[in-house]
């Protein structure tokens, strides 16, 4: 299957699809919801109820907040997630047919360093500030393993174009013969979404960290941004490691969607199953365990590529 660029109006349905996926992620999280009980409404309607509540909630102000930078940080995660998915092929089409889609995804996830720190810096309040610093510390731990995990499929496909990476998986998914890179990638998606074991930047021990002072529409944007990041990471993972739109019977876009939803459910489900890992431990795990493992994975991939010619 070859991947071709879509006309400019495709931006709108792509954005709508990402938002729908993010909402689906929130619904799944609410339905699985161990622990916290909903304030009102059933498990399935929890995200809707919460959205309505936050839209009506009055915004909270802090003393001497940096309004501009706070706004950038609050809107950032959702914008970054939207920018990530423009290079993801859905079936045979992609919104932006960039020849360096893999690097683009990497650049976008790096801009989360800035965005998350700004969301913490903006309100001029200690909880969010510490949360923002925690995110940067955590990012130092996961970023290099993530970069090498992204390199493995690119080396195997001999291209940085996500369309070529999908095409190179005809016959065998990269997830099958690069399991370490796949695992590191999924963990990094959880980490840059401040999710699951990597939720220390929004930790309850910081009264919500980066989220602590955000209220009303600001909080809604940040929460939606986290789900959108998970969804965007799942979409990229489906293209990089699960063969994108390849599959029998169903059309390509349906397979892309199915694989994305499957990855998203897996990511959402781990939320309360694993304990929070302290950022300094994330760095230790990242550099002493994940980085050597993923480098060995890359060596294996490179050897296979050379051997197959």
């Amino acid at each position: 299957m070859t991947v071709t660029g879509a006309p400019a109006w495709a931006v709108a349905p792509a954005a709508a699809a990402l938002l729908a996926l993010a909402f689906a992620g929130a619904v799944v999280d609410g339905a699985l919801g161990g622990g916290a009980r909903a304030r009102s409404g059933g498990r399935w309607t929890r995200p809707l109820v919460e959205t309505a509540r936050l839209l009506r909630q009055r915004g909270r102000r802090t003393v001497a907040a940096d309004g501009l930078l706070w706004r950038v940080g609050v809107a950032g995660p959702l914008v970054v997630a939207l920018l990530m998915v423009v290079v993801v092929p859905v079936g045979g089409t992609v919104v932006a047919d960039l020849p360096v889609g893999v690097v683009w995804f990497n650049a976008m996830d790096v801009s989360l360093w800035a965005v998350a720190w700004l969301a913490g810096w903006g309100p001029n309040s200690v909880g969010p500030l510490v949360g923002g610093y925690r995110f940067v510390a955590q990012a130092l731990g996961y970023e290099l393993p993530l970069m090498f995990a992204l390199t493995a499929p690119a080396v195997a496909a001999a291209s940085l174009d996500l369309g070529d990476v999908v095409a190179a998986q005809r016959g065998l998914w990269f997830a099958v013969w690069m399991p370490v890179a796949f695992a590191v990638f999924l963990a990094s998606v959880a980490a840059f979404s401040m999710w699951g074991p990597f939720r220390a930047p929004v930790g309850a021990d910081l009264a919500g960290g980066v989220l602590a002072e955000a209220s009303g529409a600001d909080r809604l944007l940040l929460l939606a941004g986290r789900y959108a990041l998970l969804a965007a990471g799942a979409a990229v993972g489906a293209a990089l490691f699960l063969g994108g739109g390849a599959g029998p019977w169903l059309p390509g876009w349906a397979w892309s969607l199915l694989k994305t939803v499957a990855l998203l459910v897996v990511l959402v489900a781990v939320r309360r199953r694993l304990p929070v890992v302290r950022p300094q431990r994330v760095v230790r795990l990242g550099w002493l365990v994940a980085l050597p493992a993923v480098l060995l994975q890359l060596l294996v991939v490179a050897l296979v590529v050379v051997w197959k010619g």
Binding site: V103, A107, V110, S111, W113, A114, W117, V136, A139, E143
Partner: peptide, 8 residues
């Protein structure tokens, strides 16, 4: 990529 990371 590099500049955003560097500035952060």
């Amino acid at each position: 990529l590099m500049m955003v990371m560097e500035m952060a």
